[in-house]
């Protein structure tokens, strides 16, 4: 989809900071995150594992554990609704209705004690006030829409009868049950076989195309993003370090971390995910005087470690690197 066609913002995250209680006090797992997702747009959020993607996604719907977590600042708006200030009742009206969510672990994300159909139907009953019969019928038709064969029969079966791919399809059906404005998919294909991964991605792309739903697609896999996302945000150590159209990010990254990620997908070394960048994501309670990427960055200078790097905007692109103007970074193509 062409970014020019994107209409008003469905999701607007502004300077969001999420903190966890650690031994050394409150530490940010997500810092100063800003991004917007337009109508019918697919926004890919990428970053190594531990960079704060899931925490960002969960805080949108208030799904983080209440204890030991707090919002350090910022706003999250869904259309005109302020989600961070919402009461839990208001949030429950948004969850499952205006925003659907699917998670990484299809094996454990469904309740083993209830049938697949029941778990989809209960969402329809909750938000649409449908009768049991109507909700069940909707569940069956959703299941057949996401590609579950003999849906009427399979709706009556339990999660343990389903394969991983089928469960993820069922999760998608559940998330779409009330035709949400936004689908949040947190690593929806990571736990699946490669062949199944492609099918699930195709399904999400199809479903997006036949409605005006927007998608926040979270993944550590740039290959996934390149196939379906319109725009991409790259996260590192709780911060968004770069945000631009998919083509721009892939062709001409403006942050050394993005460049490193891109070179790692070319390395074709599936056992070492980020061969392009030595080291690993720092833990959340680590404090940084300057650029959070500095100690892994090949281009770091003394200036980089003096004070925190703010987001910089140029020509419709956003990044968080002091030296982006002087550097010529390698893309994927």
């Amino acid at each position: 989809m062409n970014t020019d066609l994107v209409g008003q913002h469905v999701l607007d995250i502004n300077h969001l900071t999420v903190e966890f209680r650690t031994v050394s006090g409150w530490s940010p797992a997500v810092r100063d995150l800003s991004l917007t997702i337009g109508r019918n747009e697919v926004f890919g959020l990428v970053g190594e594992s531990g960079s704060g993607k899931s925490v960002s996604a969960m805080s949108i719907l208030g799904l983080l554990p209440r204890r030991g977590t707090r919002i350090g600042g910022g706003h999250v708006r869904l259309g005109k609704t302020d989600l961070l200030g919402a009461t839990s009742k208001q949030l429950d009206q948004v969850r499952g209705s205006r925003v659907g969510m699917i998670f990484q672990e299809p094996m454990t994300s469904l309740n083993p004690a209830y049938t697949i159909g029941e778990q989809i139907a209960e969402s329809v009953r909750r938000h649409r006030g449908a009768t049991r019969r109507q909700a069940w019928d909707r569940a069956v038709s959703l299941l057949s829409r996401v590609g579950i064969p003999t849906a009427a029969r399979n709706a009556e079966r339990y999660p343990h009868h389903f394969s991983g791919g089928m469960r993820q399809r069922a999760m998608i059906a559940m998330a779409l049950a009330c035709e949400p404005e936004l689908l949040i998919a947190d690593e929806p294909t990571t736990a699946l076989d490669v062949t199944v991964q492609a099918l699930i991605l195709d399904l999400i792309a199809e479903l997006r195309a036949e409605s005006d739903m927007s998608v926040l697609l979270i993944t550590h896999d740039l290959a996934v993003v390149s196939e379906v996302a319109d725009r991409v945000g790259v996260m590192y150590a709780g911060e968004l370090v770069e945000q631009a159209s998919t083509a721009d990010v892939f062709n001409a990254p403006q942050h050394p971390y993005t460049s490193g990620l891109l070179s790692s997908i070319l390395a074709l070394d599936s056992t070492r995910e980020f061969a392009g960048i030595p080291g690993s994501v720092p833990s959340v309670d680590r404090e940084f005087p300057g650029c959070r990427f500095a100690d892994r960055c090949a281009f770091a200078t003394d200036a980089c470690t003096i004070s925190p790097v703010a987001l910089r905007r140029s020509a419709g692109r956003i990044h968080r690197c002091l030296r982006s103007d002087e550097l010529v970074l390698e893309g994927a193509r």
């Binding site: 969850r95 209705s97 998670f103 454990t108 994300s109 309740n111 209960e122 969402s123």
Partner: peptide, 11 residues
Amino acid sequence: DYVRTARSKGL
């Protein structure tokens, strides 16, 4: 996880 799923459905 499935309790989180249930919460994400707004139950």
